[in-house]
């Protein structure tokens, strides 16, 4: 235990891990926020009756889904520079790529939430004299949001858990910092990887648990 504590107290190790947490949180939070906004818009496009729009959004969703995150990072970080001399900040690319992925997932959730809504809900809203806007505001959207929340929470925790991939574009997020510490401590301390990865596990838990709790709270509130 003493040796474990010494790993974290040595130099700036603890501060560096916290910087890793900050990068992870910053990128996930920005990506989720943007994904929700764009996902709502693209989701509405997906249920459009125009075949061209449906096909385009469908293609976007499927293309993003089959593409590994590493490939997307490569496409948006390395390729533009290689081909057109275009350089984007690594963290900007990370947020962009996660947003691209999150938007696709979110749009599909929105589509699912809206199409699973019985047509009669809209009709009985109309039948009591509500305008289309009021039907959306008081009946469709509140129910869609309730159906969306579990998916959004799930997406958020998945984002947090996917951030380690950004090591590939040279961003030192939490897990990479952990590896750096393990590698220099590992020679002296056989238990280094156990303690460091254990602590990182705990940090991921701290990031994801409150979100899960919030989700459970909302579900309970709406279940009553």
């Amino acid at each position: 235990m003493e040796s474990a504590i010494s790993i974290f107290l040595e130099g700036r190790n603890l501060a560096r891990l916290m910087e890793g947490v900050w990068i992870t949180l910053k990128i996930s939070a920005a990506s989720v926020l943007l994904s929700v906004v764009f996902g709502l818009l693209v989701g509405l496009l997906m249920i459009s009756r125009k075949p061209a729009l449906q096909a385009a959004t469908r293609f976007y969703l499927e293309a993003i889904r089959v593409m590994p995150i590493l490939v997307l990072l490569y496409m948006f970080y390395y390729l533009p520079d290689k081909n057109w001399g275009l350089h984007f900040e690594a963290q900007t690319v990370a947020i962009g790529v996660f947003t691209l992925w999150g938007t696709a997932e979110m749009a599909d959730l929105v589509r699912g939430a809206l199409t699973s809504m019985p047509a009669h809900q809209r009709e009985s809203g109309r039948a009591i004299g509500l305008t289309e806007g009021q039907v959306n505001r008081y009946i469709i959207i509140p129910q869609a949001v309730r159906r969306l929340i579990p998916g959004v929470i799930n997406l958020t925790t998945r984002m947090i858990k996917t951030t380690p991939f950004i090591y590939f574009i040279s961003v030192p997020e939490l897990l990479k910092v952990g590896q750096q510490i393990v590698e220099i401590s590992g020679m002296k301390n056989n238990m280094a990887s156990f303690w460091v990865y254990g602590f990182i596990f705990f940090l991921y838990f701290l990031m994801c648990y409150p979100i899960s709790c919030f989700s459970a709270y909302l579900e309970k509130k709406w279940q009553n």
Partner: peptide, 14 residues
Amino acid sequence: YSDKPPFGYVDANG
């Protein structure tokens, strides 16, 4: 490298 001592690594002070 940032995690391949002793060739390229980041020390405890970053």
